[in-house]
Design a protein around this nucleic acid. Structure first.
Length: 205
DNA sequence: TGAGTGATTGACT
DNA sequence: GTCAATCACTCAT
């Protein structure tokens, strides 16, 4: 390598122990950390600003409410990705939590783009920074995450969660989850208060 | 085997 | 603010 055209940026993947905790704890703790994807096209990364917790058989809104082949990953080892296809058009990415054998996952709903912004714009077809990753389906498209990432270990490249932090003065907010019909009153959605990159969710009926 | 549902998004009125 | 697109998965028969 001849010229150092870019500053040295070496994201450090989170330890598996970070994910091997209660889902609600992980859902809040993930805020401020980074989701990184290293691809041949380039490196893209975003700061997690919105999450939702989905538990196991005790959570009617969770895919793990019933144990099926699709949701089997949620019972697997922590720190792995649970990626599923929904509404015929979109992928959603979750991080498996709890200890192996216990179902639980955290849905990543929104990111603040921090690296590979131009690549995200090309993939999304939009220019506004706040429109790149402000939704579960948007961020998977911007990050280049697909069905083949289901079960991938998020503690190792090319797709992983890296250590980050909330900025000075940022606070964590909590509200009910979005887009579900069951257990809608359970306040298991966490977000960075005031962030312009948080999704607003679909129109309510 | 068949029908219904869904952790969404984008476009249109 | 309202509605349609589109397909993998799940449940019922």
């Amino acid at each position: 390598m001849t010229g150092a055209t870019a500053a040295v940026w070496a994201p450090v993947p989170l330890d598996r122990g970070f994910f091997a905790r209660p889902t609600l704890i992980v859902a809040r703790a993930l805020l401020g950390h980074l989701l990184v994807h290293e691809t041949p096209e380039g490196v893209v990364a975003g700061r997690i600003v919105e999450t939702e917790a989905y538990l196991g058989p005790s959570d009617p809104a969770s895919h793990a409410y019933r144990r099926t082949p699709r949701s089997q990953v949620m019972w697997g080892p922590p720190g792995h990705a649970y990626v599923y296809f929904t509404y015929g058009n979109h992928f959603c990415v979750n991080v498996v939590t709890e200890q192996e054998g216990v179902a639980g996952a955290v849905l990543i709903r929104a990111l603040e783009p921090v690296a590979g912004v131009e690549l995200m714009r090309r993939r999304r077809g939009v220019e506004r920074l706040q429109d790149l990753c402000s939704g579960p389906g948007k961020l998977t498209q911007a990050m280049g995450i697909g069905r083949h990432h289901n079960g991938h270990d998020l503690t190792q490249p090319p797709l992983y969660v890296a250590c980050g932090a909330l900025r000075d003065g940022e606070r964590v907010g909590r509200s009910a989850r979005i887009g579900i019909n069951r257990a809608v009153d359970w306040p298991w959605r966490f977000f960075v208060v005031g962030s312009a990159f948080v999704s607003r969710g679909p129109a309510r009926p």
